[in-house]
Amino acid sequence: MSQPEKSYQVNLLRPKKGHMRDEVLIILAILFGWGVCTFGFQLLVYLCQGTGAGSLLTRLTLFNLPLHFWFTGQFLPLWFIVLCVVFNLYVDRITEYHSRRRDKSYE
């Protein structure tokens, strides 16, 4: 159906139309959630040290763990699992959509 452009060269930042573009969009979205929560949170903890917000982060407790320790040690691994589940559900959906468009049975 779609006319493949002869000159297309695979590039993460310039995906071709169709399945690949959808896939790259979800990949970038997941990587954003991955990076912000992992490194962004550490930066936040670092910047808040010694301030009121910082003592809030280290004094508030959840399951008896200081909030920052709980977030890094327990929530982040869980968050990674959530990200992977979201990614898989979304990719399942776009795969199904594009296979149907191609009128071919699901892999």
Binding site: I27, L31, T38, T72, L76, P77, N88
Partner: peptide, 15 residues
């Protein structure tokens, strides 16, 4: 170490 050894699987899966 905990985060590095779990978060790597996100990279592996999506990329």
């Amino acid at each position: 170490y905990v985060i590095g050894w779990t978060g790597g699987y996100v990279l592996l899966l999506v990329l």
